[in-house]
């Protein structure tokens, strides 16, 4: 046994016993953006046993100021975040079994992806997918879900499912916001990313090592110095469709057709084909070589320019159309190329 974790074991609340528990932990990180990068790095350094990290996007220049796992070369190589994250996290600690999966998490695949892990760490960028993760965690027997979110200089955290009688995320969100602030609209600075992820990971370590604590909804604004910490126990709803005695898990029941999304922080539309239509990238690259320009082709994706837009096709049946937020225009461009 080397001394790798000696300083962490010297921390009395963890000790050698706690370190052994950390080693057994199997972690699912939902999203490999800013929070997922920061949390992933802390967790591999801490020495968890296994991490699965999933993400649907590729690395972009606008990510580099805050997404700490990625480099300029990753942008040039147009690597998917999940692929680059797996590589970097494994390089940091080869003892950890790290798997990166390039996938769009949906009601159809979320349970299969998460099953077998001990808990979920939130690295997502919108409230809808957090509510999907909340439902999935509850459906899988009440897996803890360490929620975190941040924009600007403001971040919040809430650990869900670590103690009986506490509310779930759906209990707290009576009305779904039509629009929330995103990194796209108000920007974000890296210190709040690291602060938010640090709180999530501290709660994870406390949970793994069996520390007693009452989960609180906490927020911090690093620019104004404002902080808040609220015990939300009283907001648990006996009628909650997600966590009551007779749950319907409404966010898991959405049926899939052709789905579209405008990505947070990006002038980009994502198109997802139903029933996991797979792209055979090699043959497809050959068939469009004469039609498109700036064709880049790696094992994970195919990127090109077409109709004045940069397009990225993933094997799992998705296309990113860059340079637009117009869903109809994006569909038209895709139809022009794919038929």
């Amino acid at each position: 046994m080397n001394e790798r974790y000696s300083r962490q074991e010297l921390f009395t609340p963890i000790g050698e016993g706690g370190q052994a528990l950390i080693r057994e932990a199997s972690v699912f990180i939902l999203g490999a953006g800013a929070l997922g990068s920061a949390a992933g790095e802390m967790l591999v350094r801490a020495g968890v046993g296994r991490i699965t990290i999933v993400d649907r996007d590729i690395i972009d220049w606008t990510n580099l100021h805050r997404q700490q796992l990625y480099t300029e070369q990753d942008v040039i190589d147009q690597l998917p975040k999940a692929v680059a994250a797996e590589k970097r996290l494994t390089a940091i600690n080869s003892d950890v079994d790290v798997t990166g999966i390039v996938v769009d998490v949906t009601p159809n695949n979320v349970l299969d992806l998460i099953r077998g892990h001990d808990f979920i760490v939130d690295g997502t960028d919108n409230i809808e997918i957090r509510l999907l993760a909340n439902d999935a965690a509850l459906k899988l027997g009440g897996l803890p879900f360490f929620m975190g979110a941040c924009v600007g200089s403001y971040g919040l955290t809430f650990p869900i499912g670590i103690k009986e009688g506490q509310p779930c995320l759906h209990c707290l969100l009576e009305i779904l916001p039509a629009q929330t602030m995103t990194c796209d609209t108000v920007g974000v600075i890296s210190p709040i990313v690291v602060t938010t992820a640090a709180r999530q990971v501290a709660d994870v370590l406390k949970y793994i090592t069996g520390a007693e604590f009452t989960p609180k909804l906490e927020s911090t604004d690093l620019w104004t110095g404002e902080r808040a910490s609220i015990d939300v126990s009283k907001l648990k709803k006996n009628s909650c469709p997600s966590c009551s005695a007779n749950p319907t898990y409404p966010f898991l029941s959405a049926r899939e057709s052709m789905r579209t999304a405008v990505l947070c922080g990006r002038d980009t539309v994502q198109l997802s084909w139903p029933e996991n239509r797979k792209f055979e990238l090699d043959s497809f690259a050959e068939s469009i070589r004469g039609t498109v320009s700036k064709l880049v082709h790696n094992p994970h994706l195919l990127a090109c320019e077409y109709g004045g837009h940069r397009l990225v096709l993933f094997r799992d049946g998705r296309m990113l159309v860059h340079g637009t937020k117009d869903i109809v225009a994006a569909k038209k461009i895709a139809a022009g190329l794919l038929g």
Partner: peptide, 27 residues
């Protein structure tokens, strides 16, 4: 004490201690 949405007409006085946490999308 948490203020329920239907009690937002609760008066505010000098020196009250108020905490507000709003949800955001990013991350």
């Amino acid at each position: 004490e948490i203020v329920p949405k239907d009690a937002y007409d609760t008066p505010i006085k000098d020196r009250d201690q108020i905490e507000i946490i709003h949800f955001v999308g990013g991350g």
